[in-house]
Amino acid sequence: MTMEFLTEPFMQRALLAAVLVGITAPAVGIYLVQRRQALMGDGIGHVAMTGVGLGFLMSANPVWMATLVTVLGAVAMELIRMYGKTRGDIALALLFYGGMAGGVMLINLSPTGSNANLVSYLFGSLSTVSDEDITAISLLAAFAVLVTVGLRRQLFAISQDEEFARVTGLPVRTLNLLVAITAAVTVTVAMRVVGLLLVSALMVVPVAAAQQLTRSFRATFVLAVLIGTGVTLAGTITTYYQDVPPGATIVLLAIAVFIALTALAAPLARRRARAAETAPAAECAADGTARADDVRV
């Protein structure tokens, strides 16, 4: 296999987008997993279809239009979660399915829309990533990384225990809304490469894979980002040579990594258990303290 793909302008754009997606999706996904909102990205992806449709209908950049719509949708989702009570699940279902149906209708009504355009946004497409898309993706990815890394202590706190975080004086509602907005931004970052229907998998599977080997939040965060970047790059290159859908390829590679790390984790867990049994009590206590400090990152 040669490196000829690096000379193709569309592949240069696709690889850059893949790196940005591989970093941002797990970086946001780790907080969604901690909050037991693993499928939130899937719901936002449905809402994003309306933004894509509006972009085609108004002859605007679909990425920016999808960002606007998904941010509004994510805020609505978070408000429903906070105040929805017993009817919250119905309201969310209406939001998700209405977003998808509205997007499909708008794309078909727009003069520039087509089934090919729809499929590329649903499942990703390398050849359709433009220079304008790269600019939008880069700016949105920078925002997502700044939030997830710069506010990692606060976001980890509300993800673990909202009540405790509220008692300590953290603005829980504001931070919850920020997580939702960042998740919305991440969906629009990833949709050109992975596709709206598969973006949620890239936000969740690398995190789940990393958790098989790591025991601290910091280590899980770093490994999940490495896995996400690795599978998006590998999937993008595979798509170039094999002419397969990029989103499906990337997700299947992420699942393969999860299975491999799960198989590797079992003997490692047994080895750690034996080591803990034979280690002096003082060493075990010190080790536990060190890991707890690491978790509070």
Rank of each mutant, 00 (worst) to 15 (best):
I259S: 15
L233R: 10
Q242D: 13
F258V: 02
L261R: 08
L264H: 09
Y241S: 14
A219I: 11
V225W: 10
I237K: 00
I255L: 13
P245I: 04
G247N: 10
T249K: 02
T220A: 03
A263D: 14
L223C: 02
I237V: 04
A234R: 04
V222G: 15
L252D: 01
T238A: 15
A254Q: 10
G228H: 01
L253Y: 05
T236P: 01
A263Y: 14
G247K: 05
L223W: 03
T238Y: 08
G228N: 11
L252S: 12
F221D: 06
A256R: 04
I255P: 06
A224H: 07
L253G: 00
A224S: 12
V225P: 09
T262W: 12
T238R: 04
G247Y: 05
T229S: 10
L261H: 00
A263C: 15
Q242C: 14
V251Y: 02
G247P: 03
L264I: 08
T239C: 10
L264Q: 01
G247C: 01
Q242N: 12
F217L: 08
F217V: 14
Y240A: 03
A234M: 11
Y240G: 03
V222C: 15
I259V: 15
F258M: 15
G230F: 04
T232N: 09
V251A: 10
V257E: 01
F258R: 08
T236I: 06
A260W: 04
